[in-house]
Amino acid sequence: MSPFFVLIRKETYRFLTVPVQTIFGPMVTAFLYQLIFGSQFQHAQGSNVGFEYNTFLVPGLVMLQVLSNSFANSSSSIIQSKYTGNLVFILMAPLTAIELYGAYLISSIIRGILSGMAVFICIAWFGNLTWPHSWATVCYFLIFGSAITGGLGVIAGILSTKFDHLAASQTFVFTPLVYLAGVFYNVDNIKIPSLQIIAKLDPFLYVVDGFRHGLIHSFNSDVVFSIWFVGLFAVLINFIGYLLMRSGVNMKH
């Protein structure tokens, strides 16, 4: 096994050793969201999502956990390695910057998808789900969505020199963007035009809508546009992340 795959295995093993935090925690969180919001809004006037609200909510909550967990994986791994000093053993290993970056990214994607699958198993029965409309679309948005947040996690991990920095980026940037990306509601229902424009600038909206389209055949955003946008955004984010990794900023002295 090449050093690259060993690092992927190590990073994957790392999150599997704490399943309460990485698998079961997201399941419980999603279950509670589904239970509370689903029961409250299932028959509410104005939810207007084109589906039963419970059905609409399932893909949103799955993608919420996919995005959150892939971000958490790379960002926490890097900042923790900085704190325990273990990062030097990774940096001293015969791995190129692209291999190092790729290993962190792929393990983040794996965690994102595993968490998403666990959440899906936990909450799918709430909705009126049938066989996915398009498996290819589902897989595309799972992989590229978690690649965006996995890449953002690497960037946050590299740029953060304290846990506080990471917490700030998570609390004030990442979480609002993910929660406002149409996980719980249809952004077309926002009555104030300026707010709707702002909501439509949220890149995660297209990840959530694209995934929802693949799973339940909804039409909140143009799917073709979402595919292009999410793909290009993933490439852009990961290119920036790779450049940061190669430069060694906040990692090498």
Partner: peptide, 16 residues
């Protein structure tokens, strides 16, 4: 790097 083994001065470990 393959030819080199280094023991850093600062204590470092992987807690997992």
């Amino acid at each position: 790097k393959l030819s080199l083994g280094v023991v850093p001065q600062e204590i470092a470990f992987d807690p997992f």
